[in-house]
Design a binder for these strands. Structure first.
Lengths: 149, 149
DNA sequence: CATAAGTGTATGAGAGTTCAAGTAAAAAGT
DNA sequence: ACTTTTTACTTGAACTCTCATACACTTATG
């Protein structure tokens, strides 16, 4: 009844787990060490920095930063304590909150970015060939379409 | 100076982040919901179940289960509370600890496995073609060699 | 309109992870 | 032999994440 993995599939699966975990851990460690923030916080700052007015509704921010709403809420609370983000009440919908990236937050992002990009290259881009990267992109898009829809 | 990512690379990177996070979250949710354990614990049980005598030194277990020593130590403490694992002192090296999978632990693993495999297929294998899986395996092996060595 | 149902977000508790520091035993140096 | 260094593992605190719940406001419903 159960469609067990054969040996080849087992090896693929375990290699996938190991590799993806290594990449995520490398990113998290680098950012924590050099910029004092976990990768999840970095993604929030990035998403805000790219939004018009460097601000976004919480729920939209959650989806752009690939975060649950609860996680985002806690994270933004911490970021607010550091002065990197502030929250404003939404005028049109008074339930809503708008997260705004402060100048300090933008500066923190700017100073974290170069080291982060370097780590991304080291961990993923540099070891792979251009064809592998194209293939990886398609694989990831496919997986996203499956799990998001 | 900084080798920023171009548009194509940005898209690949973000797709990679989204896809891998979705897969890991799907696994974690399924196991937590259906078996009451996070994926990290499942990997520990799997590693033990495959070892001779269903037992292993803590440090070896940490590497097989892709865990830090500290994480493993905490995790095994929890697994011990549930009666799924017990710890024995190592006779040859009295610093060492040996984690042993109990019968209850093995039973918990057996009952968790089918749902887990199904989720692995749903999240990763089913959506991808055989060629993509071969490519993915090579990509992951390359990344592992880069980040582990 | 009143009230029920739904949305957007926050909050608190519980659990897992990380980092730094601590203990104990083995190995290496002198 | 005796100290130093290294190895194996644990522990505690701080932090993040998840889940369930609560709250405030908005939108449907009768």
């Amino acid at each position: 009844m159960t469609r067990w993995l054969n040996d080849e599939e087992q090896r693929t699966w375990r290699s996938f787990l190991a590799a993806t975990q290594l990449v995520h851990e490398a990113l998290d460690r680098q950012l924590q060490r050099d910029a004092g923030m976990p990768h999840a916080y970095y993604m929030i700052l990035v998403a805000l920095s790219e939004a018009p007015g460097r601000s976004m509704r919480m729920s939209e921010l959650a989806s752009k930063a690939q975060s649950s709403q609860s996680r985002l809420s806690h994270a933004v609370a911490r970021l607010e304590e550091r002065g990197w983000v502030r929250r404003e009440r939404c005028p049109e919908d008074r339930r809503g909150n708008i997260a705004v990236l402060t100048d300090d937050g933008f500066a923190a992002l700017e100073s974290a970015a170069p080291g982060h990009v370097e780590e991304v290259r080291r961990a993923l881009f540099d070891p792979l060939t251009p064809e592998q990267l194209r293939g990886l992109r398609e694989i990831c898009d496919t997986v996203r379409n499956t799990l998001e829809g």
